[in-house]
Amino acid sequence: MNLSVNVCGIEFPNPTVLASGYLGVTGASLANCVKHGCGAVTGKTLFLEERPGHPNPTVLTYPGGIINAVGLCGEGVKEGRHEFEVFKSACPSNPLIGSVAGKNIKELVECARIMDSHPVDMLELNFSCPNVDDEMGRPIACDPLMTAQATEAVKKAVKKPVAVKLSPNTADIGLIAKHAEAAGADAITAINTVGPGMLIDIYTRKPILANKVGGVGGQGIKPIAIRCVYDIYKNVKIPIIGTGGISNGKDAIEMMMAGASLLGIGSALAYHDMKAFNMIIDKIRSFMEEEGFTDVAELVGLAHE
């Protein structure tokens, strides 16, 4: 039985990829995820400059989901190199995806160019975060033309494969994916968090997140993520990293059947802690055995047939 996946010429030992924003602050933490079964990892989104992110509270759970406004904290793309080196020396055969963002396209390109020189296997462009609107305006990924423009500009500046992370907070995510593909994207990551959303504490009468609003993730957004990946798969030929509310192995298989070649894992950690990775992989393996599949790639897009 083959659980390994080749995406953009990179060998992934299994389809699970730690999603950006989860456990990705340090190289040691990323390596700890691999130790727990994760196939590949995505670092925290980095900008050109150091960012402290929003004040706490930044991450909250509620029945059905998780809301966060961490606010894209990070030490800056240049300084981040060290953490990638730590990861790669511990896990040389596990792909590492470097996530980058910028306050405008010029900064994004510069940031991507620096990330391209780090020991990462692939780049991910995060222009779909919904909790920094005050600072940066509506995410680029909500607009097809800006998505194309930003993707094209980055592709001209870097050598490594580029995944474009898309937002569900748009009328037609398939169309946006199409524009990203036409602009040279090598893969699509979908979806970023939904919303933004808000939670209010009724006794203090205040929004709880310091940023007031935050991106909504977790179990509750899974059907939205599945539908988005389904729409994207219909519209593009490039591989998809399906992300959003995958909480167990069954969700993961659904996501592959919708069209994902790889699985972004994040909120499952909130529900099953570090055993989430192996739990998901074990379920995929036993499902394949029961249903007579021999290669995990056979699951991709099955819901379209």
């Binding site: 456990l23 992110g53 930044t58």
Partner: peptide, 23 residues
């Protein structure tokens, strides 16, 4: 320094083991 408090954000991960101080 902690953010989520329950082991998902990675802010408090500690070098050497990558373990999470919060979880």
């Amino acid at each position: 320094f902690m953010k989520c408090g329950f082991g998902i954000c990675g802010q408090c991960c500690i070098d050497g083991t990558g373990l999470r101080v919060c979880k």
